[in-house]
Simulated assay, not measured.
Amino acid sequence: MPDIAYWKSGNGTPLVLLPGFGETKEMWTDFARPLADSYEVWCPDLPGFGESKAPEEGFTIPSVAQILGQWLVKQGILNACLLGHSLGGYLVLEMAGLSNPSLSAIGLFHSTAFADTPSKKETRNQTVAFLEKHGVAPFIRSFVPPLFAAENREACGQVIENLVARGLQHPKESLIGYTRAMRDRSEHLETLKNFSGPKLMICGDQDPAVPLTASLEHKSGVTDFHVLANCGHMGMFERKSESQAIILNFLQSSSLNK
């Protein structure tokens, strides 16, 4: 199992926050502060991003989920609430179907249980071709800003710069590997519906990566569903306070409090 870099803060019931594609554990630093007042917050880098080593066997959603599940066990993280952003949400659903992690609740943050559509698969193929031809820097600089709703980009300018700066450090092989893994992932709507614990979903009404129409189709499969108004794909920055309040309320109402 590759080494997983992480940071943790607080005490109480574990809350594990998984970053998304091209993101690192540092994205949660400010966001997690009020959460750590009542919960033990764990924020890992995904294998191949940030300070976590890439898996020798390559990238698939099931294999990365196995690695993260083993990491949870190794750290002794029991009865955790596992919340994932975008790609992190795909991994949450994959891990929810495993027997080894001890999960009390799960959450999708700008993510989906659906597999890629044919048009989305083609977009992934175009991303791979772009990365192979032009490399990391042009991709990251063009990829990050549009994740934010146009009206929020100026206010989130420093955040965008920080995300770009960290994204520029990612190996091209990891970006390509995860793009192909996302393209080839399975649908997990039944996994979501069948998970017995509390289930949270947070989506944005202007999300360019996960259309609101698709998010709404998950509503019957979760216990707590929220749409962030005037928000793109990055609610932890675009609607920070509202997102924090939603997560805290979910944890408290689910009897996952300290």
Rank of each mutant, 00 (worst) to 15 (best):
W28L: 12
W42I: 08
T24F: 05
F130E: 03
V73C: 13
F139I: 02
P55Y: 01
D30C: 10
P62C: 02
W71D: 04
L83A: 05
L72S: 02
V92H: 09
K133W: 04
A129H: 05
L78T: 12
I77R: 06
S63V: 08
V92R: 01
Y39M: 01
M95S: 07
P138S: 07
R141L: 13
E26A: 10
I106E: 02
L93D: 01
Y39I: 00
V136F: 12
D37S: 14
D30W: 06
G84M: 01
W28M: 10
L87P: 09
I67L: 15
A137M: 08
G76A: 08
T112I: 04
D116H: 08
E57K: 14
F139D: 02
L98Q: 15
A80T: 02
T29Q: 14
S99N: 10
V144A: 09
S86R: 09
F143Y: 14
S119P: 03
G69W: 01
E56D: 14
P146Y: 05
Y90W: 12
L91V: 05
D45T: 10
K53Y: 10
D116R: 04
G50Y: 13
P118N: 07
S63R: 14
L87A: 12
L72W: 12
A115K: 05
Q75F: 01
P55M: 09
E26Y: 03
A65C: 13
K133Q: 15
C43W: 07
F139K: 00
S63F: 11
A32G: 04
G88W: 01
S99W: 07
A113H: 07
M95H: 03
L103Q: 10
Q126S: 12
S86Q: 11
L82C: 04
L108F: 02
I140P: 08
S142G: 15
Y39L: 09
E94M: 05
K133E: 15
A80P: 08
A65T: 06
L103S: 11
A137C: 05
R33F: 10
P34C: 00
P146W: 05
L78V: 12
L72G: 04
Q66R: 15
P55N: 11
T60Y: 08
N100E: 14
A80D: 04
E23I: 00
Q70A: 15
P118M: 07
V73S: 14
H85T: 05
T29P: 00
K74M: 08
S102K: 04
Q66P: 03
L98T: 06
P44C: 04
V41M: 01
T123L: 12
F31A: 06
A65Q: 06
Y90L: 09
G84C: 01
A36V: 09
D116E: 14
F31C: 00
S104P: 04
